[in-house]
Computed example of a mutant assay.
Amino acid sequence: MDDQQRHFAAVFDATYADLVRFAARRVPRHQAEDVAADAFTVAWRRHTDLPTEPDQARAWLFGITRRLLLARHSHGQHLPTVALVTDPPVPGHEDTVVAATDLAAAFNRLTPAHQDALALTVWDGLTGAQAATVLGITPLAYRLRLSRARTALRAQLLPAATTRPRISPPQGSRP
Rank of each mutant, 00 (worst) to 15 (best):
M1A: 12
D3H: 12
Q4E: 08
A10P: 06
V11P: 01
F12D: 03
D13I: 05
T15A: 04
L19H: 07
F22N: 03
R26C: 03
R29P: 03
R29C: 09
Q31N: 06
Q31A: 13
A32P: 01
T41R: 09
T41H: 11
V42T: 03
V42E: 01
W44I: 05
W44G: 15
T48E: 15
T48M: 04
P51Y: 06
P54L: 02
R58A: 04
A59P: 03
W60I: 06
G63R: 04
G63T: 05
R66V: 02
R66K: 11
R66L: 00
H75Y: 07
G76S: 05
G76F: 04
H78Q: 11
T81E: 08
T86L: 12
P89F: 09
P91H: 10
G92F: 03
H93N: 10
E94T: 00
T101P: 00
T101A: 07
A106W: 06
P112Y: 03
P112A: 08
P112M: 04
D116C: 08
D116H: 15
A117N: 01
L120P: 03
L126P: 02
L126H: 04
Q130C: 14
A131N: 14
T133Q: 15
L135N: 05
A152G: 07
A155R: 06
Q156L: 10
A160T: 14
T163N: 06
R164P: 02
R166G: 08
G172W: 06
